[in-house]
């Protein structure tokens, strides 16, 4: 069974090919390049290195969000077009769960987060060894997240490129309860994405057409429109 994994949920990029449970190829990079320019050439390069043709793939995994809207759409569009046209199943995995897998075997809980600007985050909290969600993916103020974590009253490992932005606040609120994954664990990995996807039941090939990113936020225009509708009532 050959898997292709595509992770473009934020500025880092990771692509992996896993064959029968073994990582054959994986790239992880954080060059701040436009995913639109880099992803397809990298996929082609990995296929060539692995001496595989597109039709050899049996399933595709993609980080479905949350994250950068454009980043998510590029990864999902490529993953879904490949899956649809090659008639292979497509499995979506939370991009926060993929990141949390970097801290696996932590004795406590793992909090993955992405900066969502204006002191907000996309975040979720996972069990330190199983990487099962304890608090599901959501959009939250950093304060709200820290209160939730304080109530959990367990050691928390923070992972992600954006933890530095909130480090002061985290330490002020959680003190010794918080620890921080080193920068070597800050980039999401395609191999983890595939590992997590393999735990899910394989969806039908017909489900590919309706696959969409999980933004975890409606657009500003829609939010304003809903507000206006309510005012009008």
């Amino acid at each position: 069974m050959i898997w292709l994994g595509i992770e473009t949920s934020n500025s880092p990029l990771s692509i992996a090919i896993v064959k029968d449970g073994q990582v054959v190829e994986e790239i992880v990079q954080n060059e701040n390049l436009t995913h639109s320019v880099t992803v397809m050439p990298k996929i082609e390069e990995l296929f060539q290195k692995a001496k595989l043709k597109p039709v050899d793939i049996d399933a595709i995994a993609v980080s479905e969000g949350p994250g950068s809207y454009t980043g998510l759409r590029i990864g999902v569009t490529i993953a879904k077009t490949l899956a649809w046209t090659l008639k292979k199943p497509l499995v979506g995995v939370s991009s926060l769960q993929v990141l949390a897998a970097n801290g696996q075997d932590f004795n406590g809980v793992i909090c993955a987060l992405f900066d969502a600007r204006r002191q907000n985050v996309y975040t979720a909290v996972f069990h330190g060894t199983t990487i099962e969600p304890i608090i599901e993916d959501h959009h939250s103020s950093i304060e709200g997240l820290l209160e939730q974590l304080q109530e959990l009253n367990m050691p928390v490992l923070f992972v992600g490129l954006d933890i530095d932005i909130f480090k002061e606040k985290i330490v002020a609120q959680l003190g010794d309860q918080a620890s921080f994954a080193p920068s070597s664990l800050a980039l999401p990995r395609g191999a983890h994405l595939i590992e997590l996807a393999q735990k899910q039941p394989l969806p039908s090939v017909e489900a590919v057409n309706s696959f969409i990113p999980q933004y975890h936020r409606i657009t500003e225009a829609e939010a304003n429109w809903i507000k206006d509708q309510k005012k009008g009532q």
Binding site: S36, V39, M40, I43, E44, P54, V55, Y69, T70, R73, I74, T77, I78, T81, L82, T85, L86
Partner: peptide, 16 residues
């Protein structure tokens, strides 16, 4: 953002 969807779908399809 709209262009990128068509372009990436076209690239993936062409590659496949």
């Amino acid at each position: 953002g709209a262009l990128l969807i068509g372009i990436n779908a076209a690239k993936a399809f062409a590659f496949a």
